[in-house]
Design a protein around this nucleic acid. Structure first.
Lengths: 324, 324
DNA sequence: TTGAAAGCGCTAACAG
DNA sequence: CTGTTAGCGCTTTCAA
């Protein structure tokens, strides 16, 4: 471990000049530079990015806070963020809030203490206090997938519209009963999920159709699938793929055939659907692009460039064998 | 954004005393301390961890390098590492090497530049040059799942033994033909996968059985499933679940029934298997524990404590419907 | 119990 | 073209 100061001593030259050589800055004799670089190379010099961060006032680091990494959705998001960040010479600190609002605050505070240049947030917190808090941390921030407020830049899709289209797809297939399967966290609200539920309500209203709604914290514990009792042609519209897959397991367990007896539809199109049969009908969420755009936009905010407050990306209904 | 220096100015007191208050160190008057803390609280003081890192010579950060985050295996590993690290007050920098040996070197170098206190590595590189390199970076390091050398602490399982047991399970079920389905990276070797293949070879030898071996870079492009041509009762033993799931899709596509026509077995027991039918027979890899132990051990190394060079955790064959 | 000073490794501004 | 100096925010001696 050698420092630039030591290189200066070895070369019997000033630290300023060493810095000029090491960082390719002008105002240095070609030969001196060459010599310094040679010594640096030989000694295996690596710049200390911590010191550099301190003096430059930026760390070239982006912090990411996600709810929970068990849902494949977040892994995919993280992959995309990491890749794009690396392309832009940023590094990623990631933290998991475990769907807990206090832990989320801790995560954010810690990221701020670590002087990240910006934060990408998929948040469970909401409300005025939270907005105040976000304001005070004084760090560029962008919310993804989960809308917080008009004051916080957002990247995601139009969840309500997407659910409406999903409903239409289901009804177009001739289903005469439709059950929305929502997910509730114990204490918190996830705007995206609320929007999807709201979208369902609105869709039903607009289409003058009566839809059932079933919201639980864990679908696998929901033994009473009352929607099934009717002899109508029923489809379950799930708030996300994770829930849909769990429901599929429950139905499987009960010996209820999909799609022969009931239909099922998910949301997000997470990558593991590739391996699930019957192929799940779902709605494509442009996860990759959200990640890329989030990094891109965040970096623009960091550089004080103007960015749109809201970026709504395209979604797309995806057909699958789970609906017939 | 207020600094401890500014707090000192506001309180009209020296920086040393402020430090004592903020960090709960002895040698300070209770009232002075109370006052300083009150001011700090009011001003929303947050310590600058970058400065702290610089002066303390440690960042409380662990760097993680993984091959590829698309395989669910690595997500699970990462989740576990993040959780355990957080418990121990460490933060995680993660980087993806994209199964590329040069990129892996870059990732490691970058982590070192960022002064991580230690590195957890699932590496594609091997050999003397690489070991030399690892030696020179002068940073505590631990390898997980993928053995590098006796000089680098390792945490994982006994892949060879596990594969042997898998073979035994298959043969015990009366299969008369067994095809090992391996995965090859374009340019690199993954010790874990090599070990599994070697384990298969040895098992066949010991059991005096002739096993077929099929190694490809992408099983979905392998159209010639020659192992099927026999009229024996055939099972595919895959080097990991990812490959097994892809193979399952291929078989599905060809209209070949699992397990009625052929059997299939995976390796790792990644979490998405929950959603796959038929339930895949596999070998449980204690991913969570690997992550936890890796963090634990790494922190011990960082604190100059003695640790075992090799930690071999238990695996377990898991039955499933994909074998009959 | 408190203050003053030096320094972590690097950069930036200015002077020579 | 090169050297000097000051300073990023914090910790850690050593004196007072």
């Amino acid at each position: 471990v050698i420092t630039s100061k030591e290189i200066a001593e070895i070369c019997k030259i000033s630290r300023g000049t060493v810095d000029r050589a090491l960082n390719n800055r002008p105002g240095i004799n070609a030969k001196t530079k060459e010599y310094i670089l040679k010594v640096a190379e030989e000694m295996g010099y690596k710049p200390n990015l911590v010191a550099q961060s301190l003096v430059k006032g930026r760390t070239m680091t982006i912090g990411v806070v996600v709810l929970d990494l068990n849902n494949r959705f977040f892994s995919q998001l993280l992959i995309s963020i990491e890749r794009k960040a690396k392309e832009s010479n940023y590094f990623v600190y990631f933290t998991v809030a475990n769907s807990d609002s206090e832990e989320e605050i801790n995560c954010i505070n810690h990221l701020v203490s670590r002087q990240v240049d910006g934060i990408i947030l998929y948040s469970v917190n909401q409300g005025k206090d939270f907005l105040n808090f976000l304001d005070k941390i004084n760090t560029p921030l962008i919310s993804v997938c989960n809308y917080i407020s008009d004051d916080v830049p957002f990247i995601g899709i139009d969840d309500q519209q997407a659910i409406k289209e999903a409903c239409k797809t289901i009804l177009d297939k001739g289903y005469t009963s439709i059950v929305y399967v929502g997910l509730a966290l114990k204490q918190h609200h996830i705007t995206a999920l609320e929007d999807r539920l709201m979208g369902f309500r609105k869709a039903m209203q607009e289409m003058k159709f009566h839809g059932e709604i079933m919201v639980s914290t864990d679908i696998t514990k929901e033994t009473d699938l009352s929607g099934l009792l009717t002899n109508k042609k029923t489809a379950f519209l799930c708030c996300n793929d994770e829930v849909a897959l769990k429901l599929l397991n429950v139905l499987n367990h009960k010996g209820i055939q999909v799609p022969q007896e009931v239909g099922i539809m998910g949301f997000d199109e997470i990558d593991v659907l590739d391996f699930v049969r019957p192929q799940l009908a779902t709605v494509n969420y442009p996860i990759e692009e959200v990640g890329r755009q989030a990094v891109d936009t965040l970096i623009k905010i960091i550089s004080k460039e103007d960015v749109p407050q809201k970026l709504i990306l395209d979604h797309k209904v995806v057909n699958g064998e789970s609906l017939q």
